[in-house]
């Protein structure tokens, strides 16, 4: 499979194969579609529990041996085997087009790796590009054959506009969606903040894994004494006189912004990873795997 695209070249694909292999080693016994659902059914392979028989129910699952012993009609229940929907949200706002390589390219590579592993695990992978709302989406895909579709989708994505996670999540989850794992790959530089958006995910009872991307120079900007800072998303200009104390304050604010996201995620039992674009994407993906949230 010769691919000329620079974003997902052969080297990248090799890395994906490697990541997939590693993911299998990290989660022993992990099988296709083996994600457990909390829903109990009367059919299935893995026994879950007993419950009392209700008149009119199918008698095939009645445990007759127990009836003989206890003189009670009990039905055997099984755990439903359900494939896990994965919703990968990629921030495609203008702020992501920053750095070299850009945060957006990095985000797409991470998303591609997650898609690949997910599709290989027979998960239902949804890809959603968002900025001020849902920009583009690739509805649920499953199976290895969908790998190139997802790659094409990712390659076709572009950055533009401002960020609004609230509107994006609201737009996506307002149509009935199954509960699943929501992966948000973003710089989380949302003018309206991240709290409301995350509250919304909680409301929809989604599991969240936040991948917080930043460019090293965003944290340690090299700026002259006095500078006009132009916002790449909003176009607003801020006149700033740079002082060492201001730079210290900025770094503190930057870190506290990350910490507040992490704290929110922790509080809700969600996963969070904070990484710069200098970190190789495969390392980041392995970090995600290690957290055990993505692979079950």
């Amino acid at each position: 499979m010769e691919r000329s695209n620079t974003l997902f070249d052969d080297e990248f694909l090799k890395k994906l194969e490697y990541l997939n292999l590693i993911s299998k080693q990290m989660v022993p016994g992990h099988l296709h579609g083996e994600h457990r659902s909390k829903k109990k059914t009367n059919s299935g392979i893995e026994f879950s529990d007993y419950r009392e028989y209700v008149s009119g129910e199918d008698t095939r699952n009645v445990d007759w041996r127990t009836f003989l012993r206890l003189d009670k009609l009990l039905l055997r229940t099984f755990e439903e085997e359900a494939d896990l929907p994965i919703y990968i949200f990629i921030d495609s706002s203008a702020s992501m087009d920053y750095g070299n390589p850009s945060k957006f390219d990095h985000a797409r590579k991470i998303a591609a790796a997650m898609c690949y592993v997910g599709l290989m695990n027979q998960d239902r992978v949804n890809l959603i590009g968002f900025n001020s709302g849902v920009d583009k989406q690739l509805s649920a895909r499953r199976g290895k054959s969908q790998v190139w579709n997802t790659f094409q989708f990712l390659e076709a994505m572009t950055t533009r506009g401002s960020t609004s996670m609230v509107r994006s999540f609201k737009g996506f989850f307002s149509s009935r969606r199954r509960r699943g794992l929501v992966v948000v790959i973003s710089d989380f530089l949302d003018p309206s903040g991240f709290e409301r958006a995350f509250d919304m995910l909680r409301h929809y009872r989604q599991d969240l894994f936040a991948v917080h991307l930043y460019e090293t120079e965003e944290r340690e900007p090299k700026l002259p004494d006095e500078v006009l800072l132009k916002d790449a998303e909003l176009g607003t200009i801020e006149r700033v006189k740079i002082t060492p104390s201001l730079m210290d304050s900025y770094r503190e604010l930057f870190d506290s912004h990350s910490e507040s996201i992490e704290a929110y995620c922790k509080k809700n039992g969600w996963g969070y990873i904070n990484t710069s674009t200098e970190t190789p994407f495969e390392d980041l993906v392995l970090q995600v795997f290690r957290q055990g949230r993505f692979l079950k």
Partner: peptide, 8 residues
């Protein structure tokens, strides 16, 4: 003028 990803 320096363009930053976000001036938030």
């Amino acid at each position: 003028t320096v363009i930053v990803s976000s001036s938030i």
